[in-house]
Design a protein around this nucleic acid. Structure first.
Lengths: 129, 129
DNA sequence: TTGCAATCTCTACAAATGTAGAGTAGTCTC
DNA sequence: GAGACTACTCTACATTTGTAGAGATTGCAA
């Protein structure tokens, strides 16, 4: 089975995050969360969730007439899909130039840079093995 | 004037890259590039390019009946738009977790890690000032 | 049993995005 | 001038994504 591509739309992100935070949960639960964040109506949310089921992003379990939703894409999978899409589009698939771009953005504090440096050292040590 | 948000669609990326590589250029030039890459017909490309003009991503200059296109978004602006969209969607707007995620991806060689480490040190030194 | 709340289903529409063919217009060469 | 070539214009359609109201169904409490 081919590796599934997880490239979520803006609305799908909002929904899957709400599901991650509440799963297993019913559609009205997700709708309440997104009513506050986006002002979405129940039928909006339900429609999109059912589409996400069709797309393999969510899965359902029926208990009597209640439908419980669970995510079928992990947070890491979704994040990877988003990151790799950005890398592919904006940096022709090259991870390092994108990291350099982010470092050059000037939005990282000295502390954050220090943390990243430590992480890189750890990474290098492991890569040495 | 508010800062424009540059979040390009998949097709827009393909087109703007071709324009960057050839500007100023006419639509048929872009189409030839994308015919090879995507199999797109002239009218497909022209339509999308004109929509991009409406969206402020490209601009035109008419010389007799020939229309020359130029990008109205720089590579850096477009890259920033893509990166920040990914950060916002997948990491709730936090740059550092995304960089950590990328470091954890295991796709960087020891050499690349070393280069990044050097860059971070430079960045830290500058941030100290 | 009835009424109400909760949830689901059905259906619809709009905008954005992707895709393209047919027709028109201008220029250049013969 | 005619024809060929190049580029533009006009128009259309499909899919995807976003958005939602109205109606139907089920379960529980009174």
């Amino acid at each position: 089975m081919a590796k599934k591509k997880h490239e979520l739309t803006e609305a799908e992100w909002a929904i899957v995050k709400a599901v991650w935070d509440n799963e297993p949960c019913a559609a009205p639960t997700v709708q309440e969360v997104l009513e506050k964040q986006k002002g979405w109506a129940y039928s909006t949310v339900k429609t999109m969730m059912d589409r996400m089921v069709s797309k393999g992003l969510l899965k359902t379990e029926r208990i009597r007439n209640l439908i419980l939703y669970r995510s079928d894409v992990t947070k890491k999978e979704a994040q990877k899909g988003e990151v790799m899409r950005a890398v592919k589009r904006a940096f022709d698939g090259a991870l390092t130039p994108m990291m350099q771009f982010m470092l050059d953005s000037g939005e990282l504090s000295k502390k954050q840079l220090g943390e990243l440096e430590s992480m890189i050292k750890n990474r290098k040590a492991k890569a040495k093995k």
